[in-house]
């Protein structure tokens, strides 16, 4: 980074630290914060969509759809996410490559050869010749899908509960006004359920933030991977030898996560205040009194 960094072994004190903190690996460490934020930013809405679909399916009048919704939520919720991530992405990857191999390869060559799963070079996903960023993006995409499937199942459960928590009287009033069930869904159920769904969803968001260390199992290098990697004792084989500094790195990561939580809570509080407004709940009542 800096010109004086070319020979780290002669550096000391602050200059050593300034060089150390700007090495390529540290840059990757800082960039991984961005990766994590990106994954979160994409996963949250996608998972919410999955959850919404799941909840609507579970409430559906059509039996097979209802069963599908229930099976999805209970199956995926049943498996710890670590275990899900340990074999589902490999299976997903092999599934996709198998599909591609049916189009791009000679179908008479078996995909399974002994222990090996082999598809021809053209069916590889991504192609072995593609640059490493393509592999990275592919890994991140798989990770996002896996995360969304898992957290969608939990979101479905929260939304399903919230839809059930909307006061019956409101639905009945709407029915009395001659609303169709579609109109009830759109005008009453969905707007009203958010205040009930919010505590559960915000909890889920907090859990999602803290599930990001599992990204490493999916081959995405996240903050915690780098903290562990950089913090571990470095012997003289390295340019910047140092003892076991994992504690400091983990404290740094801890601060990041606390900050994320703090910001999320501020934002969620605002949303909550907005949703509580005019609701027939204690919080809504407190707001009414404060205004009066």
């Amino acid at each position: 980074m800096f010109s004086y960094c070319s020979d780290p072994s002669v550096l000391e004190g602050f200059t050593w630290l300034s060089c150390y903190l700007t090495t390529g690996t540290h840059m990757l460490f800082y960039a991984s914060f961005g990766t994590v934020l990106l994954v979160l930013a994409i996963t949250a809405p996608v998972a919410l969509l999955f959850g919404f679909g799941g909840a609507m399916a579970a409430r559906s009048r059509i039996a097979p759809l209802r069963w599908l919704g229930k099976v999805y939520t209970s199956m995926v919720r049943g498996v710890p996410d670590i275990i899900f991530f340990l074999f589902v992405p490999i299976a997903l990857d092999q599934g996709l490559e198998w599909l591609r191999s049916r189009f791009y390869c000679d179908p008479s060559v078996p995909v399974r050869q002994g222990n090996d799963f082999v598809v021809c070079a053209a069916a590889k996903l991504p192609l072995s010749s593609s640059p490493s960023w393509v592999h990275d993006i592919y890994g991140i995409a798989l990770a996002i899908i896996a995360f969304s499937v898992v957290f969608g199942a939990f979101a479905a459960n929260v939304l399903y509960g919230a839809m059930g928590a909307v006061p019956r009287a409101q639905i009945e009033t709407a029915e009395a006004y001659g609303f169709t069930s579609r109109q009830i869904n759109r005008r009453i159920l969905l707007p009203q359920m958010w205040t009930y769904a919010l505590p559960g969803l915000s909890n889920l968001w907090m859990i999602l933030i803290k599930a990001t260390p599992l990204l490493f199992i999916l081959g995405v290098e996240d903050i915690v991977y780098w903290a562990r990697e950089l913090g571990g004792a470095k012997t003289r084989a390295f340019d910047y030898p140092h003892p076991d500094w994992r504690l400091y790195y983990f404290l740094g990561v801890l601060v990041f996560y606390l900050l994320m939580t703090w910001v999320s809570e501020r934002l969620l509080d605002r949303v909550r205040a907005r949703l509580s407004h005019g609701q027939a709940t204690l919080a809504g009542e407190a707001m009414r009194k404060a205004a009066a």
Binding site: P8, T23, G24, T25, T235, A237, F238
Partner: peptide, 14 residues
């Protein structure tokens, strides 16, 4: 990439 001196990640991230 985590077993020095056999294989590890150097200061440039390679």
């Amino acid at each position: 990439g985590a077993y020095p001196p056999y294989n590890f990640i150097d200061a440039n991230g390679d």
